[in-house]
Design a protein around this nucleic acid. Sequence first.
RNA 1: GGGCGGUUAGCUCAGAUGGCGAGAGCGCCUCGUUUACACCGAGGAGGUCGGGGGUUCGAGCCCCUCACCGCCCACCA
Length: 904
Amino acid sequence: MTELPKAYDPAAVEPDLYEDWVAAGLFHAEPDGSHLAPHARGDGEPFAIVIPPPNVTGALHIGHALTNAIEDAMIRRARMQGKNAVWIPGMDHAGIATQNVVEKQLANEGLTRHDLGRDAFIERVWAWKEEYGGRILGQLRRLGSSLDWDREAFTFDEQRSRAVREVFVTLHEQGLMYRGNRLINWCPRCRTALSEIEVDHSDDRGELARFRYPYADTDPATSGADGEGGIEVATTRAETMLGDTAIAVHPDDERYADAIGREVRHPFQDRTFRVIADDYVDPEFGSGAVKITPAHDPNDHAIALRHDLEIIDIMADDATLTDVVGERFAGLDRFEARRQVKEELDALGLLLGVDDHEHAVGHCSRCGTVIEPRLSDQWFLEVRPLADKAAAAVRDGRTTLLPERFERSFLEWLDDLHDWCVSRQIWWGHRIPAWYCPDGHITVTREDAPTACTECGQGGLVQDEDVLDTWFSSQLWPFTVFGWEKPGDTTPELETWYPTAVLETGYDINTFWVSRMLMSGLWFLDEVPFRVIYNHGMVRDQYGKKMSKSFGNVIDPLEFIDAFGADALRFALFQHTSPGTDVPLAPEWVEGAKRFTNKLWNIVGFGLRVLDDTRPGDLPPRDALALEDRWILSTLERTRAQVEDAYATWDYARVSAALYHLAWDEIADWYLEAVKPRVYGDDPTAKATAQAVLARVLDDLLRLLHPMIPFVTEELWRALTGAAGGPESLMVASYPTGRPEDADADAEAGFAAIRDLVTEVRRFRSQNGVAPSARFPLTVSSSSRQVLEAHRTLVASLAGLSEVTFEDALTERAGTSTIVLDGGQAQVELAGLIDVDAELARIDKELGKAQGDLRGVDGKLGNANFVDKAPAEVVQQQRERKADLERSIEELSAQREALAAIDA
RNA sequence: GGGCGGUUAGCUCAGAUGGCGAGAGCGCCUCGUUUACACCGAGGAGGUCGGGGGUUCGAGCCCCUCACCGCCCACCA
């Protein structure tokens, strides 16, 4: 059989295997299942995942690595289980993000997008996309992602664009999509409206400026001076006072009972406004009087609507002040205006003080600029009916959120969701299918170029300049990727794979994306887009800190793949991955995972060396199997069940832990050692049996591990089975199902007895400085005598003994040392083996510990409550432990005496 | 201001429905070139399970409370 290189070299294996898989078409799926491997044909339960489409601007970062590793494991396992599994690749055009990147590039050339003009700019973005945009998809291949590349989609390609227009028009026809003049979040740098969730709030250190509005009926010459004849207000944004149109106080606030209805005079503008009463005002805060700026604050806007106040918009697109504020401040940037307004107020004697004030400030999630609430004409989607459907689907379990504890906040969010501002004042994105006639009537249509206004019939229509929020198209992803273009559409792909099996994504985009897919899927297809929402955590560094460019702790997954291989990176991620749990990642852990792949390499490498031409296949009859065979098969089956169980709770950390333990601690450390006497021995029957079992064990191990670490397992499996590659691949081999008949408690107990004895002998060596190579005889007395005696050769081989003999009871003799076993003891002839003084010291130490433990157990057993009320078996355990301790104390004391005698 | 998660060995984390005589990986110490692997093997040291109180025969696990840490949501000027 093939000899493997001594150490695993991922770089020499991974790229070729990936190409081989692609060439063999193993990633591709057909709705009718015609692609399925023979073992699965005729079954083929549909199992689809759509990739969370990465931004075209993106490069693979560690979060992508996590998402794609998990999804790949899901898909690969489903595929091996004979499901009709498909994983759809694609990218998101990522409106603002992409536009920003290209604008930055233009800025390097000293240009703005306006210098190019709309059409040229968009052309430029497409060119950029062609040149750099595909980068991340290539990087996904390095990870081993088994995406069906024949089905790649893009949120801004023609097919998806048709669906977007159709959805917009349909929603408009349904009366849910409307144009309105409302207060929205405006980013002055991106110069566009943003939705609520595109605004990040942070607690910033700011200020609270207090100043006084003089009453209109007081003398301007004196009213400013000293607190007389005015009303005190406070603000964190002093410049907004230029757009104030009222002062509000609480209706029950006695301090202001007389003030209500009075007029105040604007210090910088030739106008006055009233003091009004509104419940919104908190009398406890500040002076209890609030200045009202309807055009620039959501609460103020609401109050303005209730009281029919004048609304004055004081800002331009770039957050400089417009002429309406008056000559003194017009044209100033908002922050400069803030400073100067305070100055002028102070000059007039109206400023009462400026205090430090920490408060939540909204920032643009794309560029970090401070958001300006602003009144604006935008397109809105009335989300209530859609959100209600989505919430109902979560509540009745049509879709399940993992971890479950996320469900509550997800539902609360859906329950008080506000209308979605979908229009963006940028160029890169789906143009809004609305046209305006010269009279301002709106025509929303599926046509490319409508010629007549639907309201008044006149021509000269001009299309809305705006584009849609990028999430508007990605919300349709789970069905547009399967060919859906309009309500009622059906395709074989949709019929087979919609709803998808699971939507796997970080919890950070539940609101942006997941909720909206749920809403639109239910609205347009009347069916949830996915049965399960699996939320993975965020990848953090080894100190638990979020990875971000500004911290400089970002880890590039490609560097890990180069250094340790994709499998190592994947396995390291899996080892810490449970639903909703953040994943800390340190280089040493990837290194550790690499060691695991190397261990696996050597485990199978050993197999290849000793299997001769044995391939995995049927096993000899059970009664021909050795104890260690039955033990490992039982352990394998038990682990397989644990893995199954862990997968049922989507807990990859437990899956990887169970398989790591199986491979390293059970197979490598014990089974391979236990099997050596037979495979190196000259009993052909015993050898053949060992080989058959070993082949089976290695085969199953590789199958179980393949979804997580596809490359190394595939390479080894081909060597083990002689598979030629291409369609003969572990990728489409069957995933192990249960073999309940392999469960064998007797064999596990028997092997455990052997293991305990061997471990004790090794401990004896280590503690007494007896070389591992030293051979010596051992006499054993044990309750497990039967099984130990029957496997004396194995015991001798594993423990490095020259001879093992058995007696019913050992008698203490000078010059021997006793090894205490779980179910008995063993005796070593010490002559020439050990250092007596060291041994005495060791015994003293053990004696001390045993005596301490005994006191503990005695205390427990002396407690009447414990003895009476604890379950009998628990009490029994303690009694046994007490007996054990007493016995070992006795033995140790005897040994001590014997040794002391030799010493003397 | 709400909500959620966390606090277990030097580090990062496991520890279903309370029975633990508390585990793993890395790190640390001792020994080791046995024909799978030094990307290794054998053995070992190291924990008042954040503090306090409670329930229980028994609590790392349940209850109360306090203290930190992290995240999400939120219109208090």
